[in-house]
């Protein structure tokens, strides 16, 4: 127990951060290089104003027709993404670790809020799972990897919930919680989870095309 704790909060945590940071950096760099070599036109048509206009419409709930005609998905996906980011960054138990290790701290969520947001993430993952299984068009697109990613994302929240509520075996579960969080971070650069970083670019580009050339809305 003590060995595992030391390893997964020590060396392995550093490996995780390095893989996450350098993996993401590498992924960005390789896309950037390829774009410069092969898609120089992309830079030509990128337009900050139209890119931001498009991004703004798509990060506001129901800002696009696509979101309006899929209300359930829109509500769930916004609650999910907000909770997914806010919870791990601002839950007290994590902030105190930042304080202990790096002597920095910031705003913390009350436990009840964090607990609710955790449930939102878990519930959303179940909703996504339901969509993947139940909706024929989504099922057709779904690969085994999509289930794995869903699992990778849900795991830190399920285990976190378990640990917080001290269900049986929570001490071991804490170690699993730490590992699952590390797996998620490490998976970001190498899986479709990287969409979080690519969103502003793909959205921004189509927004630039629609705004600058097509003179039309893209939402």
């Amino acid at each position: 127990m003590h060995d595992y704790y030391s390893f997964f909060t020590g060396p392995f945590a550093w490996i995780t951060f390095l893989v996450f940071i350098f993996g993401s950096g590498w992924r960005f760099y390789s896309i950037w290089q390829l774009a410069k070599k092969k898609d120089s036109a992309v830079f030509e048509y990128m337009n900050m104003k139209f890119a931001l206009r498009s991004i703004a419409h798509w990060i506001i709930p129901f800002g696009s027709r696509s979101m309006q005609i899929n209300p359930a998905m829109t509500v769930v996906t916004f609650m999910f993404h907000i909770s997914l980011f806010i919870t791990p960054l601002f839950v007290f138990g994590h902030v105190v670790l930042w304080k202990e290790n790096f002597n920095i701290s910031w705003f913390t969520l009350s436990n009840t809020v964090a607990d609710l947001m955790t449930l939102i993430v878990i519930g959303s993952c179940l909703f996504f799972l339901w969509r993947r299984i139940k909706l024929a068009d989504v099922r057709y697109l779904t690969t085994p990897m999509d289930f794995i990613i869903l699992f990778i994302v849900a795991a830190p929240f399920v285990t976190g919930f378990w640990v917080y509520h001290q269900f049986p075996g929570f001490a071991v579960m804490t170690i699993i919680h730490i590992i699952s969080g590390e797996i998620m971070l490490m998976a970001i650069p190498f899986t479709k989870l990287f969409h979080m970083f690519l969103f502003p670019f793909t959205r921004g580009y189509i927004g630039s095309e629609f705004g600058g050339v097509r003179m039309a809305k893209d939402w």
Partner: peptide, 30 residues
């Protein structure tokens, strides 16, 4: 939140560092 998070951090470290070095005693939050 009016929490002295620094004090809590110091407390955690005092106990946990000792427990980890002796490989005895509680280390995880709960």
């Amino acid at each position: 939140n009016n929490t002295d998070i620094g004090l809590a951090a110091k407390y955690h470290k005092l106990c946990r560092d000792c427990h980890l070095s002796r490989e005895k005693g509680p280390v995880v939050c709960g």
